Amino acid sequence: MKNFRGIVFDLYGTLYNVQSVAGICDQAYPGKGAAMAQLWRQKQLEYTWLRSLMERYVNFETVTDDALRFTCAALELPLEEDMARVLADQYLRLEPHPDTTDALHRLKDAGIPLAIISNGSHKSIAHVVNHSGMGWAFDELISAEDVQVFKPHPKMYELAERRMGHAREHILYVSANGWDASAASLAGYPVCWINRNLGPFDVLGATPMVATEDLGAMADWVLE
């Protein structure tokens, strides 16, 4: 088994499927669910990055709501306030990827401390984890709310190190987002990139320690 003193996971896209909101989007706007989910996520990410650059932090729920309103405007879809709340709340009920639960069980059974670090607020992280029944897995739930800036700002990777209580070189960082994996690697973490889409790694001057197709293969690598 690899000698990591903890593993830190990204939440959105890594453990949980952000495209799982497409179902309720399609119920609200038949035939538009997939396009909505994709653009909504794109704008959600862009707004976290832009707000960090502008030093205008708001919590993740606000970013998600703003991105939804842009998405509906761009796709020329009417958005009533009641529907906006229903759709935005779906980000609190994301479905875990099929490989998530088994991989976490195996790592937890091996005695490895596990954590989530996310751009989500404390409320949103807790809702997602508790809704999926996976609170048992995590020793720490680490939120951007504590530093008032979003990943990939270096403060987020410093926060993970402090909360885990070990030097970052002894903490495995796991993310399916190439930009996040790059930032963690540049910050000094050993990184496993979950290459779910079998695409190229972002060209940002960093290289992950290992890349796997899913969390199951990541757990295999850690435990071998």
Rank of each mutant, 00 (worst) to 15 (best):
D180H: 01
E61W: 12
N59R: 13
L50D: 00
A144D: 01
A37T: 06
W40Q: 09
S182V: 00
R51K: 15
F201I: 05
P154E: 02
C25L: 08
A28F: 07
D202C: 12
Q148N: 10
L94S: 07
S132T: 13
F201Q: 00
A137F: 04
H170V: 08
A22R: 03
R162V: 11
S143Q: 09
K123L: 11
W136K: 10
Q44V: 06
Y12G: 04
N195D: 13
P200W: 07
K123W: 11
I171L: 15
I171V: 13
T101P: 03
E46W: 01
I24R: 07
A211P: 10
A217Y: 11
E95P: 06
G188C: 06
K2H: 15
M218T: 13
I194R: 04
L94W: 00
F9G: 05
P152E: 05
Y57T: 02
Q19W: 00
W193L: 10
I7N: 05
K2A: 15
T62L: 13
G13P: 06
G178H: 02
Q148I: 00
F138S: 10
Q38S: 14
Y29G: 07
G31I: 12
G23H: 06
G31S: 11
H122R: 13
L45R: 03
H170N: 13
F201M: 11
A160D: 01
E81V: 04
Y91I: 02
K155I: 08
G135C: 11
A219G: 10
P78R: 13
W179E: 03
D89I: 00
I24S: 09
A74H: 05
L186T: 05
C192Y: 09
A219L: 13
I194G: 02
F70E: 01
L141A: 05
T64R: 04
E145H: 12
S118T: 07
S185D: 00
L45Y: 05
G133M: 12
Y16S: 05
V203D: 15
R5K: 15
V8H: 00
D146F: 02
I125E: 03
D89L: 09
S121N: 08
P96R: 08
V147G: 02
Y157A: 03
A28I: 11
V128F: 10
A206R: 00
E95D: 12
I171P: 06
K151H: 00
S185T: 07
M54W: 09
Y189G: 09
A22P: 05
L114H: 06
A137T: 08
P190D: 04
H97A: 04
G135H: 04
E158H: 09
V149L: 07
D89Q: 14
T48H: 04
D202T: 12
A206H: 04
M134C: 14
